[in-house]
Nucleic acid binder design. Structure first.
Length: 483
DNA sequence: CAGTCGCGCCCGTGTGCATA
DNA sequence: TATGCACACGGGCGCGACTG
């Protein structure tokens, strides 16, 4: 259905968010770097389409050894290739560039197989298929990246040839789908959550669909639909659902929130002083610091709110660190300052295990205090997300356990709305901007303020969650009515 | 007595969700 | 884009019971 909308109503597509734009930018950057591997390559225009196609035909007829962004059209299909390399015998090698660190099946293979179908139909003979992706072993030496060594090239000819017949068979169905006048009648499912046509597509869909249950999967929704269960009202007994979906179902259908009494007991018993901790980090595809590898995580900021004990009426104490020296590896000072700051904490509260994973990475990279920090968080850490997921559910969570949904439900007074940086993904982009040599000192100062404000609110929000859950009625309680 | 069927358990794989 | 975790699902396999 999404595909049909793409063809017939592209104008309904939601605008790309900053997140998506950032990934596209990375993709382009990687693409340009990959082209540098072939200094003799010729970059072809890719719009408008007729110009792109004619330029490609002219280049094929010429003698350029390597073509970038060659465009093809055949049998109603269009494809563009990152890199085409001419072989001595008149055949071609098709090279697809991906910005990840490994071949991802089946996505990458199908992507190339589709191009292969179009190119073959257009009369090209392709000898082999390769996928270029980043090499995790590459260590940045400062200065410009070495385009030859930063990439790994994998021969995927076998997998592509295997995939072509299956994909070609599917294409008939796809053509028929594209040609039909009305949108196909697919039932809403979990994957609708991040579809860029959701707003238009779902405007007439009645609420109450099973796919709204947090954690339910595509297959379960289909299976239940085949038994005639389409919406929550069709369910007559919670036993019809898998154990993980039962709590949310009972809460929604009974309009009663459930707070796990065990959760409150655990929160009451956390030994003080209790620290609420949050990190910000970048995972840059292209390493920013000497010795770093593609996608190696670089934590650059932490925030910590500390209360002396569970029942303390005192104001929480706030400490933080933000790395501002662009010439130094942020991880060193990050770890050293954090280790100092958490010394007196007997509990460390965080939301999802991102913090633990990040410290594990510091440990494995041999960063001083990385091992100590990882051991400490393993010993005294408390994952608030893990503690509530599937065990506590309120109607006001609206189908998600993300802190963006849970926080306003538990404590509506704490809000990210007035911030310049409202979420982690933006924090990452803003820090990349900070690192950029072209950024002005004034902008840098503003970025520092925004990042500190954001990260501070993140840990304050966790403290608010902690207090909010402790104050909640354990067990079943009437859902709060909010408008 | 031997072959087969069915049930339950284990484990690998896939999916969903969270974080940045 | 990466990472990790937890759970659902399905295939493989073992064992007990039933049947010809």
């Amino acid at each position: 259905k999404r595909f049909w909308y793409h063809i017939h109503h592209p104008e309904w597509r939601a605008a790309l968010d900053t997140d998506a734009l950032a990934y596209m930018k990375i993709g382009q950057e990687i693409g340009e770097l990959a082209r540098q591997t072939f200094p003799e390559g010729v970059l072809l225009p890719f719009s408008p389409t007729d110009k792109a196609l004619s330029a490609t035909q002219a280049a094929l007829a010429g003698d350029a050894p390597v073509l970038f962004e060659a465009s093809f059209a055949a049998e109603g299909l269009q494809a563009r290739c990152d890199i085409l390399e001419r072989n001595a015998d008149g055949t071609w090698t098709l090279i697809e560039v991906k910005s990840g660190v490994r071949v991802k099946e089946p996505d990458h293979i199908e992507d190339v197989a589709f191009q292969a179908i179009v190119l073959r139909a257009a009369g090209l003979r392709i000898r082999d298929y390769r996928l270029m992706h980043l090499d995790k072993e590459y260590a940045h030496e400062g200065g410009n990246y070495d385009p030859v060594r930063i990439f790994q090239s994998t021969d995927i000819t076998g997998m592509v040839l295997e995939t072509i017949p299956r994909l070609a068979a599917d294409l008939d169905a796809v053509r028929a789908l594209a040609a039909q006048n009305d949108a196909p009648d697919f039932q809403p499912n979990t994957y609708c959550r991040d579809c860029d046509f959701r707003e238009k597509c779902h405007k007439d869909v009645p609420s109450g669909g099973l796919w709204q249950l947090p954690g339910i999967n595509v297959n379960s929704v289909r299976k239940l639909a085949s038994q005639g269960l389409r919406v929550l009202d069709d369910v007559t007994s919670a036993e019809q659902l898998s154990p993980t979906n039962r709590l949310a179902y009972r809460v929604i259908s009974g309009k009663q929130d459930f707070t796990d009494p065990e959760l409150i007991k655990q929160l009451d018993r956390l030994p003080g002083p209790i620290g609420f901790v949050d990190f910000e980090a970048i995972d840059p595809a292209l390493p920013r610091f000497v010795g770093h590898h593609p996608y190696e995580r670089v934590p650059f900021q932490w925030s910590l709110h500390v209360i002396p004990d569970a029942d303390s009426a005192q104001q929480p104490e706030w400490r933080d660190y933000l790395h501002t020296d662009r010439s130094q590896d942020p991880r060193i000072a990050f770890a050293a300052t954090l280790w100092e700051a958490v010394q007196d904490c007997n509990s460390l509260v965080f939301y999802s295990d991102y913090e633990v994973t990040t410290l594990k990475m510091l440990r494995d990279a041999g960063v001083p205090y990385g091992r100590e920090l990882h051991e400490k968080i393993k010993a005294v850490g408390y994952d608030l997300f893990k503690a509530i997921k599937g065990k506590t559910y309120w109607n006001s969570f609206n189908g998600s356990y993300s802190i963006k949904n849970v926080l306003p439900a538990v404590n509506p007074a704490v809000s990210y709305n007035d911030l310049n940086v409202k979420n982690g993904a933006v924090a990452v982009q803003v820090y990349e901007e900070y690192l950029d040599p072209a950024t002005s000192p004034e902008r840098r100062a503003a970025i520092i303020d925004d990042l500190r404000t954001y990260c501070q609110l993140d840990t304050y929000a966790m403290l608010a969650l902690y207090q909010g859950f402790r104050a909640a009625v354990p067990g079943w309680a009437p859902a709060a009515v909010r408008d």
